[in-house]
């Protein structure tokens, strides 16, 4: 494991902790897209199917368990927690995320690495994750006042895959490990989708004002 990969995993972990902190500390999920959280839960459930079959390392297993349980806990909180669910902006979070699931699944059927159940589901999870942030970014444009924890959460969530891209570049030059083109392309698409947000996040940080995405 190289520093980029480890930094990417830690960044991803921090984003999850920031979201849990926001929901726990403010007892509110305002500004958070339930649809993006549901898509991420689906991403982890379909990507980590080998959790019980292939043991890679303690670290690998622990991280997979953390990501699966936290994403399910957040979806549960936003749907069922008596206090938190009331702050969910249902009428603003209207992205048709079912189309993202359908599109990713069709892509995985046509472009898996291997045409086996596990590889098709793995490719599905990779394609889906690339677009999973869209409902959240759309919601962010609609919600004017989003708290800082939420913007930091999105920043770290977007940064982790960018660090993974650096990890693949590093591995390409050091281990001659070409990596999987599915991961490369999806990881690049995923990171590009955040560029707009990163720009406004940087502007808001420099001018120390609230982050505002243009309408």
């Amino acid at each position: 494991m190289n520093i980029f990969r480890f930094a990417g995993d830690m960044t991803h972990l921090v984003s999850v902790l920031l979201l849990l902190l926001k929901i726990y500390a403010t007892k509110s999920c305002s500004g958070i897209s339930l649809k993006t959280q549901e898509l991420y839960a689906l991403v982890f459930l379909t990507r980590y199917l080998d959790l019980f079959t292939d043991f890679i390392s303690i670290y690998n297993t622990v991280m997979k368990v953390i990501f699966i349980t936290s994403s399910l806990a957040i979806v549960w909180c936003m749907r069922a927690h008596p206090t938190v669910r009331r702050s969910y902006d249902r009428d603003q979070d209207t992205f048709r995320h079912h189309f993202l699931v359908l599109l990713s699944f069709i892509m995985a059927l046509f472009f898996p690495d291997l045409f086996t159940t596990r590889e098709v589901l793995w490719a599905f999870s990779i394609y889906l994750e690339a677009v999973a942030i869209l409902p959240q970014l759309v919601l962010l444009q609609r919600c004017r006042n989003v708290d800082n924890l939420t913007t930091h959460y999105i920043f770290f969530l977007g940064s982790y895959r960018a660090l993974y891209v650096l990890n693949w570049i590093y591995r390409y030059f050091t281990e001659k490990h070409a990596g999987r083109w599915i991961s490369w392309i999806s990881g690049l698409v995923q990171t590009v989708l955040y560029l707009d947000f990163f720009y406004y996040y940087f502007i808001s940080w420099k001018s120390s004002e609230k982050l505002r995405l243009p309408a």
Binding site: H12, D54, N60, M63, H177, G179, R180
Partner: peptide
Amino acid sequence: TPRKEAHDEL
């Protein structure tokens, strides 16, 4: 193998 390598990533 590249496949296993990729699967050790999260």
